[in-house]
Amino acid sequence: MSKPIVEAREIHKHFGHLHVLKGVDLEVAERELVFVIGPSGSGKSTLLRCLNRLEEPSSGSVVVDGIDMLDPRTDINHARQRIGMVFQSFNLYPHMTALGNVTLALRKVAGKSRAEADALGLAALQRVGLADRAGHTPGQLSGGQQQRVAIARAIALEPRVMLFDEPTSALDPELVGSVLEVMRDLRQSGMTMIVVSHEMGFARNAADRVMFMDDGLIVEQGPPAAIFENPTQERTRAFIGQIQRH
């Protein structure tokens, strides 16, 4: 296995009295796709958000692509450009066009000119199949299209890692496929991805590794087949049984 591109050690996170992460270790290799599953409140989203420091870990260390994310001397805004994030509720900027959403950070953080940013932004929209919607505002797009624009917003910055926080949970069932397809393309292009999601079918045929989290800890991890067919832990079995019944 090549040198890990994401290395998180002993991550703890407290929200007041709540102990949400209880010492999580996570290593992700380059080009790996790690799938994180677990019941709501298990801490999987919090873990993801600790990786780009949207959430400040209470203790532990996070190194992404050789950059110590928790070092106060790290230029966090620069570092975050290398870590793309896709949210459950898209979080597109409603006052900007699709292209405007994609190019904002290119112009303001990466320092590109408007023309350069527009070209890169259009290319990113092209990759998610929405170049023809560049001039539309989020309100004029379907949920699936909005989420694809959100993915374009992240990949336009050419990140080394992509974090997906339940990217299809807010979508109507018939729109899920288009988003998963874009994620599959990304995967094929060799992007390192960490995905929190309940899309078991996608996990089964796209993931290198599945992690099951419960109560702030990683309970069990392994190849998808092993986790889904032969979980060793009772908690994992119960959770997977529940999910598959739906």
Partner: peptide
Amino acid sequence: GQWEASRSTGLSFGQTLIN
């Protein structure tokens, strides 16, 4: 979520506030 999306792409607090 608007703050988070913007900060996740590397915009600073001030840039997020203004833009």
